[in-house]
Design a protein around this nucleic acid. Structure first.
Lengths: 310, 310
DNA sequence: TATTATCTGTAAAATATGTTGCAAGACAGT
DNA sequence: ACTGTCTTGCAACATATTTTACAGATAATA
């Protein structure tokens, strides 16, 4: 029966626990608790002080830490060495590392996106970068501003104009296509800036102008924004983290992160914000939008442009 | 003496800043975002670096912070003073204070994308859906196929044609704009299908046709794909999870998830794949692409289309 | 284009921080 | 009580950090 081997069981258990407890102390807090028994009086005082409000309390200078724990500075220096760090700076750096891991979004350290591809495959590296862009963009985005812009775009009294630059033209086009379904009085300003004055001519005070401008910021777009602003047009700006100069004319500004491992910039995070904004506008104008969608369906049927498959 | 006007200057400065500050900046992150416009180039760089991995990145020495942001140490010292702190140590102490509040707060709000918006805000719901789309899309994507398509698009012997539908036209446009920089012989087929036969006429066996087709699948695009296929053109298809009928002519097919909480479909996941593909193609054609980019820069300079700000 | 104002990095000074040697103090075992 | 060992803080030293002064660079303006 088990009785006989019982002592062995306990023995091995102890051994096992011993190895667990001596080796893989992942966090400094664990290390402190583990070594607590072997610590001296002053060191225990210090350890308690550190664990209290961990890990922030350890992020001040060694002097301050010592004062908070009511021990001398050398005691701190000696104890962190006991913990296996070369010195206080290294200890602190480890603390920061822990904190970072704890703070950062769990999505960010998703295993692999393309599960059958290696971690270093561009699919995974690119996806990582884009998700990080999304995280940062949304983290910095003010929901009140966002809602404000949506309300403005949902206001059927205002005409809406949309303009993009060399790269962002595609985003402008995309937004236009969807907003056009949601409401009337939406105009896509073409990329040829020669014709822009004609569009400005039609703009009324209170109209909305959606501007896409990321680096390299385009001079003509700045001029257009200025002219529009002078006519009392409200400007909604989509730009990058460095902010287009159009900012100074903008009522609402959205900074989207665009950095990816490539020679140019990513529009995916911006696209996400644009899509969310379209969705939100459609929600607000739903009584109108649903009618328009239905009418659109009928038009499609009559032009036979689309056919239902499957 | 300057003293008199100095006082006024400060007073008005304060007033002006006061209006900006009406929504009180509680955190340093908010302060940074609020003051972003009044910051200089190096300071913006620094602000971005600080917001990146906020607030942990600000808990190192001023030297390290400067290095991470690629600015000089004094720039950091000056900016924290601009933010209203007496010096770097005070700034850091404020950061620690925030962190403490955030850490000790039992409500972990790291789950939300837009941290200041409620979970049910469309920003969070939409982001959740899109990230899930990305996850699923990449999970199902075959890296070998992906690499195959990239190699094909990087082959400078082949001409590349790109075509999109009503909604996906923007994606086609986007891909075209970038591929055109990377290599020659890239053509965007316009959305008006009347002109399509002319394009088919030019297609040679071995050329590549990138087709975007998501629901509602478009009849004309299917026809175009069929004609192209008959001429020996290789087709790369971007479609949704239900697959466009173009599949049967396609050499490579990429199914992208498109479902979001709205009346229409999201293109963000598709955009991500497209961008990754462009990045990969550029990698493969880098010796050519870098030359083209340089030439393009020079052309920009000569046309004065873009101006460098700040 | 020249001029002015502003920005930004280098370098050095001022200050704070971290480390180590040393002696006084605490404590356990004889 | 004595002895030896271990612990602890003081103080000096070495090092790193923060600040300040200055000059070159850059952008804005006329």
């Amino acid at each position: 029966m088990l009785q006989d081997s019982d002592w062995r069981y306990k023995f091995f258990t102890k051994r096992t626990m011993g190895t667990i407890l001596t080796n893989p102390a992942t966090t400094i807090a664990e290390k402190l608790q583990q070594k607590f028994d072997s610590l001296t009086r002053a060191e225990r005082q210090l350890a308690n002080s550190l664990l209290d409000n961990y890990p922030v309390s350890g992020l001040t200078s060694i002097t301050t830490v010592a004062q908070n724990a009511d021990v001398s500075t050398p005691t701190v220096a000696r104890m962190v060495q006991k913990l296996g760090f070369s010195g206080y700076p290294e200890f602190q750096s480890a603390l920061r590392g822990e904190l970072e891991a704890r703070i950062s979004n769990p999505i960010a350290k998703h295993d692999n996106w393309a599960t059958t591809a290696p971690e270093t495959h561009i699919l995974n590296r690119f996806a990582d970068a884009v998700i990080e862009n999304v995280r940062q963009t949304l983290g910095q985005l003010d929901p009140v501003e966002f809602d404000g812009a949506c309300t403005m775009l949902a206001d059927k009294e205002r005409s809406v104009y949309i303009v993009g630059g060399r790269i962002t033209r595609a985003l402008a086009d995309y937004m236009f296509t969807h907003l056009q379904v949601a409401r009337e009085k939406v105009t896509l300003i073409p990329s040829n800036s020669n014709t822009w004055p004609h569009y400005v001519l039609d703009m009324q005070a209170g109209d909305a102008l959606v501007v896409f401008d990321v680096r390299r910021y385009e001079h003509d777009i700045l001029k257009l924004a200025e002219l529009a602003k002078e006519r009392g047009v409200e400007i909604i700006l989509f730009t990058d983290q460095w902010s287009s100069p159009v900012s100074k004319f903008a009522t609402y500004r959205f900074n989207c992160r665009i950095e990816v491992p490539s020679a140019w910039d990513s529009s995916t995070a911006t696209m996400l914000i644009v899509e969310t904004m379209i969705a939100s506008v459609q929600d607000r104008t739903w009584n109108i939008t649903s009618d328009r969608m239905e009418a659109l369906e009928k038009l499609f049927d009559r032009t036979k442009l689309f056919r239902k498959f499957i």
